[in-house]
Design a protein around this nucleic acid. Structure first.
Length: 590
RNA sequence: GGAGUCGUAGCUCAAUUGGUUAGAGCACCGCCCUGUCACGGCGGGGGUUGCGGGUUCGAGUCCCGUCGACUCCGCCA
């Protein structure tokens, strides 16, 4: 059977007069008793089909029985619409197909939700994902994802990168996220892990002389889910040899330029803004600052070196800082909102949130009584305090004070409904991350990026002298509109340095040999200097599509509890299948 | 593990201070309708108000518990 000559979005005025066959889904039926209109839909668009009973009684009679989502095939002549009945909302709106034959290929049950509007019930959408995907928004998201992926592949190919696949069944590692484990039947009691990222393999490809590698790589992390986190997600993973950070920056900037040009017809400026981690924390209280609005943090420590206010004095005595931010015109804040902001600050580790409201020419605040006139004057000047302003304070160690106010800053923007242009694209490189961070709970040093990250050359001595907190890494994140969409680093290519870092991370030599022996060994056989980056494809697409959740740009995502509702995975398996794998379960099978 | 928001018809939502038989639009079914485009008109069917308990003369509404969805914190090198 001949199903179609073109898609339902393809026909234009020039096609008038042609005899055309179309197939698709019934999007809507407008039955006038006599003439019947059908909107025929596929992924590319909608074409109006007309049935005239006086011209073709049988086709019209069948058309009368059509319902939403029936699959049909129609054949007929393309004609210009009657003057005044053109539909400018449709690209095909100047014409229609006058049906001479209609074949009903497959009837549809009444759909559980309408295709044309945005549905709030995500459960239902995920259960009937195959219907949800027919909705134009979802079709557009999948199309966008395809386009972007294709652009990335083509550009990296042009730049000399090879697409190489790395194992999905690999080894569990102690660092980082919880692994998904897969029992190894042929090695009873042993397990593979699904990769959190192809990190070690791509470095070994560099040792293998591949020189430039990339992969649209599925990654797996068994952690709790979020709107922007799925247990399996996709990274654009790449690595190159004999390069510097600058090479990575300009490559990625070039890719984004092309993506925005081709998907949005927008020319973005390069190079992107760059900011050190320290500056990002200092000014925005975040390692992924949203620079689309100002409201920057200010350091007011020097004003309060001599202060009666114990909270400030305590912070400064312990080597901390006092940070402040001016929420312009937000003195009208309610006490409930103050409480909300305080909770936000506390969730970031702050002990509280001091504030000053400037109302009717007065400073209304529980803490102003501790301030001298000189301090007030200095504060007013530095913070540019004006009638109607709200000043918020964070007093703690540098990281905590900044992070707490950084989160408060975002919450204030939300509460105050600060205007953010959603078409704006604020790209930003955050560079010079610390190499290591001390974990109080674990009582040990952890890698901020990952354990293969290269320290900055000028900070190498700090590793020898044990000033671990001071060491900066050749690591970088790329941020778009306050969302981290990728990160990478220059890597260590010397086994000696790598072993020293493992040592700093508290991984003893035996464990090093067992878990990372292959890497250390590989570095002894002429490893080239190399580095790379991984972009979070799902997040990137969701930002381009202006979606709140990455679930909107994944064909078959999992819900908050990691379940895929359409197929009902994960599910129980037979006891005998477990026996083959030498697995016994302890939880009750309900 | 913790916090918050929500849960009423297939879908989106309403239901005043606790008060009669829980409503509307869309969808669905039937009839009518020859230029609509979310066609229109008339009529009809459709409800364990997530579930369980409690208070009350009376609960969609108040209280307790529970289940589920989503958002956030923890977690995510």
């Amino acid at each position: 059977m001949h199903y179609r000559d073109c898609s339902c979005g393809a026909l234009r005025a020039k096609d008038v007069g042609r005899l055309i066959t179309l197939s698709g889904w019934v999007a809507s039926r407008r039955d006038h008793g006599g003439v019947i209109f059908i909107d025929l839909r596929d992924r590319d668009g909608i074409t109006q089909v007309v049935f005239h009973p006086e011209q073709n009684a049988q086709a019209a009679a069948t058309a009368h029985t059509l319902r939403s989502e029936d699959v049909i095939c129609v054949h007929g002549k393309i004609v210009a619409r009657l003057a005044g009945t053109e539909n400018e909302a449709l690209p095909t709106g100047s014409l229609e197909l006058v049906a001479s034959t209609l074949e009903v290929i497959n009837r549809s049950q009444v759909p559980p939700f309408p295709m044309e509007e945005r549905i709030g019930n995500e459960d239902l959408r995920l259960t009937y994902r195959y219907l949800d995907l027919r909705r134009p928004e979802m079709t557009a998201n999948l199309r966008l994802r395809h386009r972007v992926t294709k652009i990335i592949r083509d550009m990296l190919d042009q730049e000399g990168f090879w697409e190489v696949e790395t194992p999905i069944l690999c080894n569990s590692t102690p660092e980082g996220a919880r692994d998904f484990l897969v029992p190894a039947r042929l090695s009873p009691g042993k397990f593979y892990a699904l990769p959190q990222a192809p990190q070690q393999y791509k470095q070994l490809l560099m040792v293998g002389g591949v020189d430039r590698y990339f992969q649209i790589a599925r990654c797996f992390r068994d952690e709790d889910l979020r709107a922007d986190r799925q247990p399996e997600f996709t990274q654009v993973d790449l690595e190159a040899s004999f390069i510097s950070e600058e090479d990575i920056f300009s490559l990625i900037e070039k890719i984004f330029q092309k993506i925005l040009l081709e998907t949005r017809a927008v020319e973005i400026k390069t190079p992107f803004l760059r900011m050190t981690y320290h500056e990002a924390m200092n000014r925005y209280g975040s390692d992924k600052p949203d620079t689309r609005f100002k409201m920057e943090l200010s350091d007011v420590s020097t004003i309060f070196t001599q202060t009666e206010f114990k909270v400030f004095a305590h912070a400064l005595d312990h080597g901390g800082v006092i940070k402040a931010l001016n929420a312009k015109g937000f003195a009208s804040i309610t006490s409930g909102q103050i409480e909300t902001l305080t909770d936000v600050a506390k969730s970031a580790g702050a002990k509280g949130l001091a504030f000053i409201k400037v109302e009717n020419g007065e400073w209304k605040s529980p803490i102003v009584k501790f301030f001298t006139d000189a301090q007030k004057a200095a504060l007013a000047k530095q913070m540019n305090m004006e009638e109607g302003d709200l000043i918020l304070f964070g007093a703690d160690c540098f990281e905590t004070a900044c992070m707490a106010l950084g989160r408060v800053r975002l919450k204030v923007a939300e509460l105050q409904k600060i205007f953010i242009d959603h078409d704006q694209l604020a790209f930003l490189w955050v560079v010079d991350f610390p190499l290591l961070a001390y974990s109080e709970e674990e009582n040990k040093w952890n890698a901020v990026h990952h354990p293969f990250t290269r320290p900055k050359d000028e900070d190498a001595e700090l590793l020898l002298s044990g000033q671990l907190a001071e060491i900066r890494a050749q690591a970088y994140d790329i941020v778009l509109n306050g969302v981290e969409i990728g990160g990478g680093s220059m890597r260590i290519h010397e086994s000696e340095l790598q072993a020293r870092i493992f040592g700093a991370l508290g991984i003893d030599e035996n464990v090093q040999k067992e878990l990372f022996g292959h890497l250390l060994k590989a570095f002894e056989y002429g490893a080239p200097p190399h580095g790379g980056i991984a972009l979070g494809l799902d997040r990137l697409i969701s930002l381009l599509a202006q979606e709140e959740s990455i679930r909107e740009v994944i064909a078959f995502p999992k819900n908050n509890r990691g379940m895929e509702l359409m197929t009902g995975s994960p599910s129980h398996v037979d006891e005998k299948d477990l026996r083959v794998l030498s697995i016994a379960t302890r939880s009750k099978q309900s």
